[in-house]
Amino acid sequence: MATKWKAALCWLALAAAGFGLINVLIGVGVIDTFIENMLVTIGINIILATGLNLIIGFSGQFSLGHAGFMALGAYATAIITSAMPTVGGFYLSVAVGIAIAMVVAVIIGIPTLRLRGDYLAIATMGAAEIIRVILNNLKITNGAAGMFNIPALAGWPTVYVMVCLTTLMIVNFARSRAGRAIQAIREDEIAAEASGIDPTKWKLAAFVMGAATAAIGGSLDAVYIQTIAPGNFGIMNSIAILIIVVLGGVGSMTGTFMAAAVLGVLDTVLQSFGALRMVIYALALIAIMVFKPSGLLGRYEVSIRAWLDRKGVNNAASNSNRAE
């Protein structure tokens, strides 16, 4: 069997095992509501941060407006499920949220993606703030008070499946024609353009893809927390997602998983510290950055396929040794 299929099966088995494990742990009471909450938050953060890592780590575009796209998904879900409080309504709202986020990403991206580095960051931050201000003033979104009593249409299993699905899509996107094009632009835009790659088109592709996954994260957040308000999608929320990406290692999806988990656990553990919580969090953040400037994992990725390849080579080598 080809290594690629073996690797895919391994990942599938791993995902299924994880699902089973959580199920069992909830059954025997090791995972209580408190920990389940933490796991769901970690899952949603993974969805948000892998999308942002695609934009920042792979296409090299510094976006600081991720919470804006998250808000679009969250509000699409809140509004649609208030009229259609069914699972079907939820999935429809996810699709609508994705579509809106993609359209808005195109509208924001076309003028701003020509900007470089920090200028782009500040422009995308501004765009996200504009989204927030609009949500804050519309009737249909219930203004600054936000929307509550959103039906609980997704529990941890939905979030788990969505984490797997979005990660699969983002990682596969990053390792394809599209991924090579966006990484070429990140490395050297002038050379990429001279090689026939349209920088605007591919930067936009990564940006739109990231926005779409952010909308999924927002939709899940809405039905899980059941309350949303414009204040949940401000600059500080975009920064929180950015922190996960940088802490894990810009360009490492494995790192994003790890950072989301570490921060999720840290946050839960620090709950009992009261007012000191954020002080410790801030110090931890500074310390990690000063002592591990490239993030927890740098650019490292876990790859079952590479591991199988290595094993294959070793086996072949030991086989040939035996033959001698």
Binding site: R180, Q183, E187, D188, I190, A194, I197
Partner: peptide
């Protein structure tokens, strides 16, 4: 020289085949 520095040689070549 303007190569895609952190990409492999294979990826450098394949990126130029995008179109």
């Amino acid at each position: 020289i303007r190569l895609f520095a952190r990409l492999t040689v294979r990826e450098n070549i394949q990126a130029a085949m995008t179109h």
